[in-house]
Design a protein around this nucleic acid. Structure first.
Lengths: 275, 275
DNA sequence: AGGAACTGTCCGATATATCGGACAGACGTC
DNA sequence: GACGTCTGTCCGATATATCGGACAGTTCCT
């Protein structure tokens, strides 16, 4: 009886970190779920939705009874964790921002990365990102859109297939070819425009990135951007994160080289903190 | 039977936004609390605690049974909302950062303020903060510690008595004298070092700040810092936030004037977004 | 005007999450 | 080596949170 409306939305922007334990969008029909699981599902839904949602839409999205969602959301609003927005919508609230800031502050690498990202963006005017793996996906953890924010390719906390990114070619450096192919879901080799990446090429690019100590890709996510990434390496030699520029593809080679120098300097500095 | 240990800790860094509805630290002894209320209390406790806490300490801190806290915390860790840290401690996790970033992105004023704060900090090298009221307290919403991060006076999301701050003198501009005195708790006029602020002086300073369109205070939070604040004003003329510099008290007057010019420019730009 | 789809609120029943207590093991101190 | 305090795990009982359904009011179609 329960329509699975909006399933598409959630699928498209899959997140993977906070999905309800076993159920895709909700407990088995008739089953009763715990409040905490409902809350986690509501967070995941709002994050995937990317903008305020009305309570009815949330209830449908997570497959929970409306009455339950009203109850929980109102309690979360009271706590400042969610916030009512215009037109009946609800989205994340101030408390989330405070707790998120606590997280960043508590991780030395992130705290420093935030400074580096802001500094590079200000100095060079380009978009700078600090990226990591999130399960078997890639995600932007920190970003500064720079001055000429011509286009936002990806946003904080939104997961993206690893092969779509320059950083992805660095972040898998510690894995063997077999491990890599087992790790990445088949469908992640398909780009947004339908093109399919060749796995042999991909493996070769990972190898090359590891030898050079950086990676550059063009026209993967879209036709007009180039992504340049440098690795942040921990004490064991493993690439734990990357710092990268997102620039227009027609950026002159000399400028790209200068930007890469700046990236490598920052990455080395971050690597010291990560050790 | 239940010791109220750590009560002091929570008191000292009172937060005010996410405290469990009625109970100070937990439900009445013997009573049974909802999972969601426990979760909210756990968040508030960790935020007040300012660093990873062990589960036993959390249980004591929020006045909940250990078995319940284990259950809830493990579920939250699974969802990436909390994260295990070294030595058995637990603190906020990646998901919190992602959701917090969603919040900032969804509020136009905050998104722009983040850019302004980073830009001013980079350009001037001083600590810049974007501040707001949180109930009847003051709190830093955004901060960039600048280059010479000589000392962190306050951190994101930590509430501070309004009279302690330069911003506080601007943020109450829309209230009458009676309203202000009714709004601020008696104890908030006592500074950290025990000095008591005179209410008449305080009201006069608010009036002066409103007429000048900025506020400057020295030696309030500690002896060595000066705080300079400029108001962000919405369409109705109300001060909805401030942007401010935190500098050493011995900063030359000419430099302070130049910094204030930069603040006022940013504040005017933000005011346009806030309207 | 009628209908469809929404919102926000209330209610009683029952499946179950929370709780208290017990357990073994780890750690440090005296 | 005995003691106190901690951890992580398990369990059964029962107070109760979740659920389904109903309600009136609103909006937006046609």
């Amino acid at each position: 009886m329960r329509r699975d409306a909006r399933g598409k939305v959630l699928d498209g922007v899959s997140d993977g970190i906070a999905a309800p334990a076993a159920a895709p969008y909700g407990a088995a029909p008739g089953g009763r779920a715990r409040g905490i699981d409902r809350v986690i599902a509501i967070f995941a839904f709002l994050h995937a939705h990317r903008e305020p949602a009305r309570i009815g839409a949330i209830a449908r999205g997570v497959g929970a009874p409306r009455s339950t969602v009203y109850e929980l959301v109102n309690r979360l609003i009271e706590a400042g964790i969610l916030e009512p927005r215009g037109d009946g919508g609800v989205y994340f609230g101030r408390a989330m921002h405070y707790y998120g800031a606590d997280y960043v502050r508590s991780v030395a690498l992130l705290e420093q990365a935030q400074k580096e990202v802001a500094h590079l963006a200000e100095e060079c005017g380009e978009t700078v990102q600090f990226c990591r793996l999130e399960g078997n996906k890639y995600t932007v953890v920190l970003m500064d859109a720079g001055r000429r924010t011509f286009k936002i390719t990806s946003e904080i906390g939104v997961t993206v297939p690893i092969p779509w990114t320059a950083s992805g070619r660095l972040l898998l450096g510690h894995m063997s070819a077999e491990e890599i192919l087992a790790f990445i879901p088949e469908e992640d080799f398909v780009l947004a425009d339908g093109r399919v990446l060749d796995k042999t090429d991909f493996l070769a690019e990972i190898d090359e990135a590891g030898r050079h100590g950086y990676a550059v890709t063009s026209g993967l996510v879209d036709d007009f951007t180039t992504c340049m990434a440098a690795p942040v390496i921990d004490g064991t030699g493993r690439v734990v994160a990357t710092i990268c520029f997102v620039v227009t593809r027609n950026t002159p080679t000399e400028r790209q080289e200068r930007l890469m120098e700046r990236l490598l300097t920052s990455a080395r500095s971050l690597s010291r903190t990560a050790s």
